[in-house]
Nucleic acid binder design. Sequence first.
DNA 1: TTAAAATCTAATATCAATATTAGATTTTAA
DNA 2: TTAAAATCTAATATTGATATTAGATTTTAA
Lengths: 155, 155
Amino acid sequence: MRLISQGAQYAISAIIAISKHAEDGAVSASYLSKSLNCPTAYLSQILAKLKKPGILKSQRGLNGGVYLSKDIDSITMMDVIAAIDGTEFFDKCFMGIEGCGHIEPCPFHHFWSVERKKIQRWLESTTFAEVDEKMTQAWFDLRLQFSSGVPSLSR
Amino acid sequence: MRLISQGAQYAISAIIAISKHAEDGAVSASYLSKSLNCPTAYLSQILAKLKKPGILKSQRGLNGGVYLSKDIDSITMMDVIAAIDGTEFFDKCFMGIEGCGHIEPCPFHHFWSVERKKIQRWLESTTFAEVDEKMTQAWFDLRLQFSSGVPSLSR
DNA sequence: TTAAAATCTAATATCAATATTAGATTTTAA
DNA sequence: TTAAAATCTAATATTGATATTAGATTTTAA
């Protein structure tokens, strides 16, 4: 029972970390994976999926890495989740029943179609810029495994 | 991206089907699996998990099967989901972060803790008796693969 | 008494998500 | 020119959820 995949969780944290280094140019997957405490090669695969929808761009070679390809106030939570997990969840019945709908609702349909829509709207309307504003520095320290503040890239 | 497991989905449909035969005594897993269009042996394992928390009892041998061990107005959706999937989901951060909480919230914490609680309360307060009342016969036909009405056990 | 119909359990198989490994390619500082 | 640091890709490994298989046990109608 889980809403978004591990991969989508990594992706969200990665974008927050990348946005913290927007001024510094490209950020490497190995640096990010250390910060997020996740496998480097796996993160690379996740980051690759964020390139297709135009969330990230990448630069090969020494001092290369990934960087945001648009402003954080135009990247929504849904953009990232959709890129990694797809959007099937938001079309799908709680019970996974094909014919479920307004006319032949499953036991969860009336409740779940309302709640799911709320979640969808929130994810679609919440950008990483808002997240940056609202979140405490303490959380960054916690999630990004830094001792304090935003670290230098040290490379 | 999915809320409840396939197993929990089977369990919920199974209980609805079993409740339709409350008068007939035990209902066999093979009969149920045909109705639900799911693997018999797998369903048996799911049904076994519903015995421990006292939702079902079983009868071995010819004409045996499972039957509800309490009234459907005292079995909630959460009872069944918890028996199959556990309740970890309802304690867990959207991002899967250990230290996430009121003091050091993740980007989703404020939104998600409210929405998740709504889902939890609904699942905890909705019984199978209500489901029975509210659901259309059409849905039963759809989900339970019956041509019309509640079929005889034909055994 | 026996055969059939059922549960129950343990072992195994399959599949998708997650993760790792290996190595090819690109870029750039020295 | 070259070595290092990076992306990129494909192949493989691991893990947990899902599903299957096999067979032991229980019950009862005939």
